[in-house]
């Protein structure tokens, strides 16, 4: 069965390694913070200028001067630091953030991503997404495998205006975990109960399936 948003987030969190600095985009990526394995420590970077982002504040902790990149009120963890926007993007653009997780409208076999603009609809802006995809060492895209109309979001070539080129290495959808390499998607894992055939049918771009593809495992 297709994964829920929470299950996608759970699977994303298994990609984190002890000591990683991680930037999580808005939506499913943010949920991944709730599922970081208990035996590792990661530090969350928020691109408005906070390294060591904590949970949402209690009513008593609420502070207008403490927000995240989604403009939500947040707290900081012990050992956090706060800095200006140029410093924050020096970390991002300089390749110092280990993992970036973000959503997308489309990805393609060349590792291109489209996530910010649908022609004909009002464009609100790219925020920090273009900087993040150009800078992070390891970029994970989370999204549903197909759109509401059943059309694949994993393509041979993105049709929408791009956020970045040749930058996506890993995709975690409601159906599968895939890597992007050598001009193709490579199927690594399937969601529990989802067949290879269904994934093939919903992947428009070139897909390579080798051997038995294991089901995702969810550690507690």
């Amino acid at each position: 069965m297709a994964l829920s948003r929470e299950q996608i987030a759970m699977r994303v969190a298994q990609e984190f390694k002890d000591g990683d600095y991680v930037n999580l985009g808005i939506g499913i990526p943010t949920l991944a913070a709730n599922y970081v394995p208990k035996d590792i420590a990661v530090m969350l970077q928020s691109e408005n200028g906070l390294l060591g982002m904590g949970p949402y504040p209690t009513e008593a902790e609420l502070d207008a001067d403490m927000i995240n990149a989604g403009k939500e009120t947040v707290t900081s963890i012990t050992g956090a630091c706060i800095f200006n926007s140029a410093e924050s993007f020096a970390m991002i653009r300089g390749g110092h953030v280990d993992i970036t997780v973000l959503g997308a409208f489309e990805v393609d076999v060349s590792g291109n991503i489209a996530s910010w603009m649908i022609p004909g609809k009002l464009v609100k802006g790219m925020g920090g997404a273009m900087d993040l995809v150009a800078g992070a060492q390891n970029i994970i895209v989370t999204m549903t495998h197909a759109n509401k109309h059943g059309e694949s979001k994993l393509l041979d070539a993105c049709t929408l205006p791009l956020t970045g080129v040749n930058c996506i290495t890993r995709i975690i959808t409601d159906l599968a975990v895939l890597k992007v390499a050598n001009g193709a998607f490579h199927l690594l894992e399937r969601a529990p109960g989802v067949s290879v055939e269904e994934i093939q049918q919903k992947t428009a771009g070139k897909l390579i399936v080798e051997g038995d593809v294991p089901e995702m495992q969810f550690k507690n």
């Binding site: 691109e47 200006n84 926007s85 140029a86 924050s88 993007f89 991002i92 653009r93 464009v123 802006g125 790219m126 925020g127 920090g128 997404a129 273009m130 900087d131 800078g135």
Partner: peptide, 13 residues
């Protein structure tokens, strides 16, 4: 003129 956030910060800096 939509400008990537890091580029905007760097343009000012």
């Amino acid at each position: 003129e939509l400008t990537p956030q890091g580029t905007l910060a760097e343009k000012m800096r």
